[in-house]
């Protein structure tokens, strides 16, 4: 396992693409978060809402770039044919796949931590200037606040789970454009489609099974009862998706001819 990990890490660091994608992910996440917090102001009349969640809005954009990176880790090898070199060097396909997953998890966790903490810091600075002060009941965002800590750590976990989910789907589909279409469809479409379901139970169900609509419940710090799922259960749904696609992708990688 160690040589496989070392090889995958070397692969990841010796092309410029992954680094740029991760830097872009951090920039996009922080930028969208900062943008979202800078458009709200707290007036004396109306100052409700979940400011922690708002400060972490950028994760919705950052996850798309995480998905690209994850897809390229495997589809990129299929499109060039290098997957055969990889599997010749590491004939234990499960090990090779696990090495990819672990390396990806590592780099996304590091970049995700930077992106999420950056978003939170931006939110803290911006919200304070927009009237969200301790007086109307909005103390500065801080990791010492339990729910905020949970939302922050959960957002980092969420990004790594999206990376794993994407890796699994890319291993199943193999073509990068189709994989990314399916991943972004799963993430972005389910919440939109759930709005057309007239039956409230059906609507709630769709929001509960959507990897994004369920998983981002981890970012909520207020109004927890109105969420489709409790925060950790929601993140659990995303983890379930990641596990299911990884297992399916891993099995297909084992049984299919390379």
């Amino acid at each position: 396992m160690r040589p496989a990990l070392h090889a995958e890490w070397t692969k990841l660091r010796t092309v410029a693409g992954p680094l740029w994608l991760l830097l872009g992910m951090i920039a996009a996440t922080v930028a969208l978060s900062a943008g979202a917090t800078s458009v709200v102001t707290c007036t004396s009349a109306d100052c409700g809402g979940d400011v922690t969640r708002l400060s972490l809005t950028g994760v919705q954009l950052g996850q798309a770039m995480v998905a690209i990176l994850a897809v390229l880790v495997i589809s990129g090898e299929y499109s060039s044919g290098m997957i055969r070199t990889t599997l010749t060097a590491m004939p234990h396909r499960a090990t090779a796949f696990a090495a990819k997953a672990i390396t990806l998890t590592g780099v996304v966790a590091v970049a995700g931590t930077t992106a999420v903490l950056g978003s939170l810091l931006a939110g803290r600075l911006i919200l304070h200037r927009h009237g969200f002060t301790a007086a109307p009941g909005h103390p500065a965002l801080s990791l010492s606040d339990g729910p905020t800590l949970r939302a922050t750590a959960g957002s980092i976990l969420y990004l790594t789970l999206i990376a794993l989910l994407s890796l699994g789907i890319a291993a199943i589909v193999r073509d990068s454009a189709t994989s990314i279409g399916i991943i972004l469809g799963l993430l972005y479409l389910l919440p939109i489609l759930s709005q057309v379901i007239g039956n409230p139970h059906g609507q709630r169900l769709l929001q509960q099974i959507g990897p994004m609509s369920a998983g981002l419940a981890i970012q909520a710090t207020t109004n927890l009862h109105s969420l489709p799922l409790s925060p950790w259960a929601g993140l659990g749904v995303t983890a379930g998706w990641a596990a299911a696609t990884l297992v399916a992708g891993g099995l297909l990688l084992r049984v299919r001819d390379a």
């Binding site: 919705q60 798309a64 998905a67 897809v71 990068s176 454009a177 994989s179 990314i180 972004l184 972005y188």
Partner: peptide
């Protein structure tokens, strides 16, 4: 992959 993501994000996000 980059093209698909860019366009989907630009329209749907």
């Amino acid at each position: 992959a980059g093209a698909v993501t860019t366009v989907i994000v630009a329209i749907v996000l």
